[in-house]
Design a protein around this nucleic acid. Sequence first.
DNA 1: CATGACATCTGACAGTTGTCACACGGAGTC
DNA 2: GACTCCGTGTGACAACTGTCAGATGTCATG
Lengths: 201, 201
Amino acid sequence: MIRILLAEDQGMVRDALATLLDLEPDLEVVAQVSAGDQVVPVALGANPDIALLDIEMPGLDGLAAAAALRAALPACRVLILTTFGRPGYLRRAMESGASGFLVKDGPVGQLADAIRRVLRGERVINPALAAAALSAGPNPLSARERDVLAAAADGSTVTDIARQLHLSHGTIRNYLSSAIQKTGARNRVEATRTAHEHGWL
Amino acid sequence: MIRILLAEDQGMVRDALATLLDLEPDLEVVAQVSAGDQVVPVALGANPDIALLDIEMPGLDGLAAAAALRAALPACRVLILTTFGRPGYLRRAMESGASGFLVKDGPVGQLADAIRRVLRGERVINPALAAAALSAGPNPLSARERDVLAAAADGSTVTDIARQLHLSHGTIRNYLSSAIQKTGARNRVEATRTAHEHGWL
DNA sequence: CATGACATCTGACAGTTGTCACACGGAGTC
DNA sequence: GACTCCGTGTGACAACTGTCAGATGTCATG
């Protein structure tokens, strides 16, 4: 019996996936959580063989939760399940120690299949996505540029961001400027968009 | 037998919901689509009793698809199914002739229940959401302000938007300015955010 | 130890954005 | 008919933004 922890914030989707996985004779959903920061505490109690983690979750995102889970429970495999097949997501997932990366696109059977393959020790990755992630190259943004761009995403002004990160006004403008150029954008809004699309944030 | 059309862009979610609904003895998913603009053509062939429409879909969004479906097939009820319980969405859903509005939050049983109730002629709406929609008041943005704000959302400059909408530079700035003030924001990015959060776009 | 990448800062310049006052015509309302 | 709201436009001003050249310091790598 494969013991599964399922982390997904949309209740109806979580419920539906759990029900269908439970219908499989060799699979058993032993825990369900709706936020990233519940993953580790619940996993410590339920001791699953594999954790299915959505990336877009409140609290901690699925990638950060994956890293925390690998540290806390190394025996538990991680399968990332996401709406968006962004190359940067895949890269970060692998760096966080995930064993598989599945886009919520195909049929449900694909999911059960991926779980079994991961438990046999295989790595499950969409080949097209892997190629895209490799050909896209690494994240061009420096750590600070990411911070600043992320802080700018909600419409904050330069002065807001400067206060928030304890940096000078001019420094923020410089980071934004270089982030804009590295993303090939014309302004911070476009830069934020393309960075998100590539999974660089 | 209740005949259902299911429109949802995430393949795995669509597949899971369809499978679970088909397990109910009185429900039957007769058609599945993954984009808003397929709803009407497929419905004309499948002749469903009710259409379950996700809002966030490529092509035509679920709300626009609902209006089109009501016009093309008045006998078919519409149940809107969405991730986001935004007051403006609910308002627009009702204006588009939907019979119900369900947030993808509760268990799957809620969905089957809602379908049966809609088919009995009831209107299914989350009471808390309905209260929020009523107390929030109507959309404060004029049609043109919405157009301009939507065009600005992707990082377009004033000049871009002016070309795109065939308006003068100054007019765009005026609309943006009033949209910013009506939303209580400090710039177009914040304005876009709050407008989205309220479902005004 | 020289080189380069990164983090941090300043000051200056040009361009964009947000605001305001004002104008005109059309549609709807009291 | 006066009033108001909407759509459209202009011109001006202040604030914000994006770019550039330069400066300093740290750290890793060859």
